[in-house]
Design a binder for these strands. Structure first.
Lengths: 214, 214
DNA sequence: CGGGTCGGGGCACATCCGTGCTAAAAAGGG
DNA sequence: CCCTTTTTAGCACGGATGTGCCCCGACCCG
């Protein structure tokens, strides 16, 4: 039997090289040669772990989705341990949604890579499956959060129209988050971390006051 | 004297070829050869009107920004002729903001090309100037609209904190719009034109109720 | 202590890209 | 009619990319 290395670990190293390149210079520089250089490997070696360029990119997309989903799940678990309506709960909601925003270096890289892949998926069919999974995952988290928040002021399931309103509000929150992420990445001079926080708080406050007046 | 053609018109034809390619297959297919083919020209001919590939792309970016800005200005003018608070005014606001969303074929192409260039500007310095102009233009329109809406319920300038709140709300509206556009382009199955409309109406309603309760 | 298998590297080819440069065609004024 | 200037077209070169294919060193098991 020959020499054995941890294939999963090597793949992860290559994927992280992809992340660094995409975050710094975009997907168009994530070629096999550039990735191999960044990972201190030869092109042939990278191709030993990923059959093709497409598989490397698709797998990288999957990893970043899993990373974000993992952070969201952890924040969701912590949120579930707080009592609704308390200041702690409100802070938990901010933390949960903040996991999607580029508020520190790690989340900035993730958000950047995530955005790049989501946009590329529009024109590259081999990324479409991961893009769908990504969207479904995040939409589910936001949907659960909206139901949670709605449960505070109007416990007991409201009928069809109320359900429709909830879906609309979930999509609105999702759109605001993605737009915020986009602005923070593309116009960092205008959209600072502080502004992200302010906008997010304003949105949550708006949800509260609207629900109260209804 | 030699043969004369309308250079501006030829340039416009080439730019529209760029739009078709970017909308269909993204910026990565907008090479000189592909654009020349799409415009039924030779590469050398395209290069006669645009000194380089960079200039072609930067100019195309500028054209799409101008087109969107023109539609916004027109909608803003029409809005100014309506009385604040009326249903007509509210419809005008929806129309104005709707100019940014991919609600029909023309706006979908514009939004798509616009997004593609904005994202590319993050890593391609020669697009940065247009991206800045684009952002400033749209932010100014949304800012004026927010001041207009704020003037309805709280006429007379409020001081510093009120100004700060207004900026935050403007950024929030802007983020929601861009996120909506993004979702409509990337996940058209979930984010339909109807859903765009519902979310936009919900956001405006939220602005009203929040302002009223303040 | 050999041999077979895997990790890792690299060559070569076809393809695409932007661009410098050259050349033909077109057309209106002298 | 011809000449000048614009328009249009095309060639060729250097560079980058994905991929098929081959090679060699390293290692562990029999």
């Amino acid at each position: 039997m020959p020499k054995f290395v941890d294939a999963a670990l090597r793949r992860q190293e290559v994927v992280e090289a992809v992340f660094r390149i995409v975050a710094a210079d975009g997907l168009e520089r994530a070629s096999l040669r550039e990735v191999a250089d960044e990972a201190d490997l030869a092109v042939g070696s990278v191709r030993h772990y990923f059959a093709s360029s497409d598989e490397l990119l698709a797998h990288s997309f999957g990893v970043v989705v899993d990373r974000i989903a993992g952070r969201l799940d952890a924040a969701e678990d912590r949120l579930a341990e707080t009592a609704p309506g308390t200041a702690e709960h409100r802070r938990g909601v901010l933390t949960l949604l903040g996991e999607l925003l580029p508020l520190d270096e790690e989340r900035a890289v993730d958000a950047c890579v995530w955005m790049a892949f989501k946009n590329a998926a529009r024109t590259r069919p081999f990324l479409a499956a991961e893009a769908d999974r990504s969207h479904r995952t995040v939409a589910a988290v936001v949907g659960r959060l909206m139901m949670d928040l709605a449960g505070i002021d109007a416990a007991g399931g409201t009928g069809g129209p109320g359900q429709q309103r909830l879906v609309t509000e979930a999509e609105r929150l999702l759109a605001t988050l993605d737009g915020l992420t986009m602005h923070a990445l593309l116009q960092p001079e205008w959209m600072t971390a502080q502004m992200c926080h302010d906008v997010l708080e304003a949105h949550l406050a708006s949800l509260d006051s609207r629900a109260a007046s209804h």
